[in-house]
Simulated assay, not measured.
Amino acid sequence: MLSYQHAFHAGNPADLHKHIVFAELLSLLTKKDRGITVMETHSGRGLYDLTSAEAQKTGEAADGVGKLSLDLDTPYGAAIRAIRARHGETAYPGSPLIASHFLRPQDRQLLMELHPAEGPALKHNMKGTIAEIHQRDGYEGVLAIAPPTPRKGLVLIDPSYEVKTEYDQVADFVPKLTKKWPEASILIWYPILAAGRHEGMIETLAPLSSVRHEVRFHYKEGKGMLGSGLILVNPPFGSEACFEAALTQAGIILKK
């Protein structure tokens, strides 16, 4: 489905959970000189304005990043501050720009985005970075390119899950990717809904070596998205602390 646009949801509590962990992982993986490859299956446009009509319509950022006092000594806080220094104080970066803050000349970034409007916007917003933009289906694109060079890498899978079959797609895709690219760590985001639609996907992925982390939102009262979940397949050494960082840095919004 191509109707979803993240501009309505940028900076919400789920973004905080996902992006804090993502930034921590990138900081961890770039500590050594060895290059890494970062891929995304659903990149979005990479940069959002929290004063836009879309963001104002839902007001979700007010319950997320709007409540957060950024710690500039953390990977996430440093990335947000650096990107806002270039794009303005109401800017909120998606995962592509967050990743670009950490990546070095020896690294590689490949971004998939199929949406006819989001794809061109992503190309515009990622100008001046090392990113390679592919306007194609993310599952097909990542699998076709894998394994890339450098072989050490991180893949972010972050679909909208507007279509219920998306959970099955993720569950089918991840084992194929691990078989083709065993050196990759794979970070999967999913929403926690009252219907529990994510449970079948989790059961299918259970045999893989992974870490699972779920949080709830303080402000939710049984309606809509109740929380946010992450699964890290093939976790790198030291990654457990990356998940705890989300609660340390955004405990006012996220809870176990």
Rank of each mutant, 00 (worst) to 15 (best):
Q5H: 12
D33F: 04
E60W: 04
H115R: 12
Y48S: 02
R136F: 14
E40V: 12
L122I: 09
C242I: 04
L16H: 02
A7K: 05
Q169C: 11
E203Q: 15
F102Y: 11
K127M: 15
R197I: 08
F8M: 02
F8A: 01
Y219D: 15
A23C: 14
A62C: 13
P159K: 12
Y139M: 13
A250S: 10
L97M: 12
G238T: 11
W181C: 05
L205D: 00
L28A: 02
A250E: 03
A53W: 00
G128R: 12
G141T: 07
A117H: 09
R34D: 14
M1K: 03
T248C: 13
P147M: 01
L70Y: 09
F102P: 11
H134W: 06
S209F: 00
T149Y: 11
K67S: 06
W189Y: 07
G59D: 07
W181S: 07
I202H: 03
S160P: 14
L254P: 10
P147K: 01
E203V: 10
I202S: 04
P116D: 09
F173M: 10
A117R: 11
G88R: 02
V155Q: 02
G128D: 13
D107C: 00
D107T: 00
I202Q: 03
V215R: 03
W181T: 11
D168A: 13
P236K: 06
N234P: 07
T149K: 13
M225T: 00
D107Q: 00
Q5E: 11
L122E: 04
S69G: 09
Q5M: 08
S100D: 15
V142E: 04
R108H: 13
H115Q: 14
V142I: 12
G153I: 03
L187C: 06
D71F: 02
L47D: 00
I98C: 12
L25W: 07
Q169P: 05
L205C: 08
M225Q: 01
Y161C: 11
D49C: 11
L26I: 10
H101Y: 15
L205Y: 01
V38F: 15
K18P: 05
R86W: 10
I20D: 00
E240S: 11
N125M: 05
F22E: 03
K256T: 10
L2V: 04
R86D: 15
V65A: 06
Q56L: 10
A246P: 13
L72V: 07
M201L: 05
A246L: 04
A184V: 10
T58R: 06
S3A: 14
D15T: 01
G59N: 10
L208A: 09
I133K: 10
R45F: 02
A79V: 07
W181I: 11
Y92T: 11
K152A: 15
D63F: 15
P235V: 15
P235D: 15
R84K: 15
R197A: 03
L2I: 03
M1Q: 07
P150D: 08
S69Y: 08
A62S: 14
L28N: 01
A7I: 08
A206H: 05
Q109I: 13
T149L: 14
H19W: 04
P148N: 13
